[in-house]
C-alpha cells in the first residue's frame, strides 16, 4: 500500500516537473503572467481608486467579489466550529469555587451557579493552577499595544502592507493571548460568545451590505464609485472609502471568528474549562 502512495506522489510530481520545463524564467519581468492583466492594475490603481497599495486595491475593488467570499469562508469556518462542537447542555460536572482572600477551594458536586456573582469567590477550573504573575503582568502590558497595532494595520492598509485580514488576526490574537495567559473564563468575560457570534455575522454583513448598497444606488454590485451619491466626495475618493469600509468589516469578522474558533476548539465546545 505504501508503494502505491509513493507511486501516486511520484506520478503527480513528474507531471508537475514536466510542466516546469515550459515555464518562463523565474523572476522574468516579461513572463505572460506579468504582461497580460497585472500592468493594468499597477497603472490604473491610483487614478481609479486613489489607493497606492495595489494589493489592497485589487483585493477590495478589482477583485473585491473574491474577497467577499473569502471573508465568508472565514465566517463559515467559525460557523462550522459552532455547529460541530458547541454543546449547550453540559454534563453534570463538579463546580469549583475559590475564596480569593484565603485561597480555600470549595468543591461542589454537580452544576451550580450559586456563588457566581459573589465578590469573595471566583469560579475556577478543575485543573486550575495559580496564574503566573510574570505572564499576567506582561500580557496585561502588551495587549493594549497589540490592539493599537492591529487598528493601525487595519486603518493603514491603503498605504502600507496591511488591511482587514492582517489587522483582524492581530486583534484576535490579543484576545486569545488574554485567554491563554489568564484562563478562558476571563477572555469570555471581556467578549462573550454572543458578542462574538454577532460580531462575526456583522462584519461580513457590512461587506456584503456595502456591495448591496451600490446595487440599490443603481450600479453593479460592489461598484463603490456610486457611493459618491450619498457621500460628499467624488467617485474616486468614494472607491477609496468603500475599500476602507469593507476592510473594517473584514477585520471585525476575522477577529470574532479567530477568537471563537479558539474558544470552541480549546474547550471542546463547552466554553467552560478551556486550555
Amino acid at each position: 500500500m505504501r508503494y502505491l502512495y509513493l507511486l501516486l506522489v511520484v506520478l503527480s510530481a513528474s507531471v508537475l516537473f514536466y510542466a516546469t520545463l515550459d515555464f518562463p524564467q523565474w523572476g522574468d519581468p516579461n513572463s505572460p503572467a506579468s504582461l497580460h492583466v497585472s500592468p493594468v492594475y499597477l497603472q490604473r490603481s491610483l487614478e481609479d481608486t486613489s489607493v497606492p497599495n495595489v494589493v489592497t486595491s485589487v483585493l477590495a475593488d478589482y477583485r473585491g467579489y473574491d474577497t467577499m467570499f473569502e471573508t465568508t469562508v472565514i465566517f463559515t469556518a467559525g460557523l462550522a466550529c459552532f455547529v460541530l462542537l458547541r454543546v449547550f447542555a453540559p454534563k453534570m460536572k463538579d463546580t469549583y469555587y475559590r475564596h480569593i482572600q484565603s485561597g480555600v477551594v470549595l468543591h461542589i458536586k454537580g452544576q451550580t451557579t450559586l456563588l457566581d456573582g459573589s465578590r469573595d469567590f471566583e469560579r475556577i477550573d478543575s485543573r486550575w493552577v495559580p496564574a503566573d504573575i510574570i505572564l499576567k503582568t506582561i500580557s496585561r502590558f502588551l495587549i493594549p499595544f497589540i490592539q493599537l497595532f492591529a487598528l493601525y494595520v487595519v486603518a493603514h492598509g491603503h498605504h502600507s502592507p496591511g488591511g482587514g485580514f492582517q489587522g483582524g488576526v492581530i486583534l484576535g490574537a490579543s484576545i486569545i493571548l488574554l485567554s491563554i495567559s489568564f484562563d478562558l473564563r476571563t477572555g469570555l468575560e471581556k467578549i462573550h460568545e454572543r458578542g462574538l457570534g454577532l460580531f462575526s455575522a456583522t462584519g461580513v454583513f457590512i461587506y456584503t451590505g456595502i456591495g448591496a448598497l451600490c446595487l440599490i444606488l443603481g450600479k453593479e454590485f460592489l461598484n463603490y464609485g456610486v457611493l459618491s451619491k450619498i457621500l460628499p466626495v467624488d467617485p474616486v475618493m468614494a472607491r477609496s472609502l468603500g475599500i476602507f469600509g469593507v476592510e473594517v468589516g473584514v477585520a471585525i469578522t476575522v477577529m470574532a471568528v479567530m477568537v471563537s474558533i479558539y474558544n470552541y476548539v480549546s474547550s471542546e465546545g463547552r466554553l467552560d474549562e478551556g486550555l
Binding site: M68, T72, F75, L79, E193, R194, G197, L198, S200, A201, T202, V204, F205, T208, G209, G211, A212, L215, E220, F221
Partner: peptide, 24 residues
C-alpha cells in the same frame, strides 16, 4: 438583470442574518 448577483449575494446576507438570530 441584477437578479443574477442578488441570487448569490442575498443568499450570503440572509445566512448571516440567520446565524445572528441564534444570539437574538
Amino acid at each position: 438583470y441584477h437578479f443574477s448577483v442578488i441570487l448569490v449575494t442575498f443568499g450570503l446576507l440572509l445566512s448571516f442574518i440567520t446565524y445572528a438570530m441564534t444570539w437574538i
